[in-house]
Amino acid sequence: MATIVPISLSVGANRIIPTVSIPHPLGNPTLDPAAEKQLRRHLVEKALNALQTDVTEQTVFSGE
């Protein structure tokens, strides 16, 4: 899970989830706490989904 996808690709990561921003990849301080946690959950669920997906090459899971 990383904000700058091209860097993750260049270092060889195979399953990549684009995240929010460098200082707060899995959060957004401008949201209220509940909404921020919902955003985080959404991203983590995408990560769990990626873990359950077979991939043959470096794959960026960026869809909604």
Partner: peptide
Amino acid sequence: DADRVLPVDV
């Protein structure tokens, strides 16, 4: 809130 980097709560 370190959860913003390490999502322990979720």
